[in-house]
């Protein structure tokens, strides 16, 4: 007696289509990702209940690390203008090459007198150097001069002044940054934080709920 024949189908699934989808999504996420610019130093920002996203255009960011040193970075749109303005104001002798180096640096973390040497340091070596930071004392307030240069250079644009400080930054260091801004008649700041949930049952929570239903 012959046994009933069971047709054995192959279990091999054609993966080509799935592979296509996977890589399509991968490409999308790679392109959509905005990579972090070179960070001066590691800064852990505190959390806040604010849910506004940080502006990425025309941003002038002052960072304060946990050792209370002050660093500066700017987005590329305003960087060149700020440099020109500063050179003019301080009567510095610079070459076009200097400007090229300046445009390539991710952040500034030294006083003016070391600036030209500083911008020539390759970015991978910066981690090993103990940077002094930008002085912002009442006698030598270079931060204030940077802000003034940025304000003059960015005339007509709406500059976003961001302040990024570490959890463990002491308040007086943050106060110095605020004072430097106040000297230049700038009173609106954006403090960079990471998101945190609003505790339920509080007035802000209910406001947010109402805003959502509208």
């Amino acid at each position: 007696m012959a046994r009933a024949k069971i047709k054995r189908g192959s279990t091999h699934v054609d993966m080509t289509a799935m592979c296509d989808v996977a890589f399509l999504l991968l490409t999308f996420f790679i392109l959509a990702a905005n990579f972090k610019p070179t960070e001066a130093v590691e800064i852990t920002t505190p959390t806040s209940v604010s849910n506004t996203h940080a502006p990425m255009k025309d941003a002038f960011t002052v960072s304060v690390d946990k050792d209370n040193r002050i660093f500066l970075n700017m987005t590329d749109e305003i960087k060149g203008d700020v440099f020109d303005e500063l050179v003019q104001e301080k009567n510095m002798k610079v070459t076009p090459e200097d400007k090229k180096y300046f445009m390539a640096t991710g952040f500034i973390g030294v006083p003016f007198n070391q600036l030209l040497q500083f911008i020539r340091i390759p970015s991978d070596q910066l981690k090993n150097i103990k940077l002094p930071g930008i002085p912002a004392d009442s006698t030598n307030n270079e931060l204030s001069e940077w802000i003034r240069a940025a304000k003059t250079a960015g005339m007509g644009k709406k500059l976003n002044f961001l302040i990024k400080a570490d959890d463990n930054t002491k308040y007086p260091a943050f106060g110095k940054v605020i004072d430097a801004f106040k000297k230049n008649d700038e009173y609106k700041y954006n403090l960079i934080t990471s998101a945190e949930d609003v505790p339920p049952g509080t007035p802000l929570y209910e406001d947010n709920l109402k805003a959502q239903h509208k």
């Binding site: 990702a33 905005n34 990579f35 972090k36 920002t45 806040s48 604010s50 849910n51 506004t52 996203h53 940080a54 502006p55 961001l162 009173y187 609106k188 700041y189 954006n190 403090l191 960079i192 934080t193 990471s194 998101a195």
Partner: peptide, 9 residues
Amino acid sequence: SQPTIAKLY
């Protein structure tokens, strides 16, 4: 990597 901001006036 999306930071948020707290406004301070």
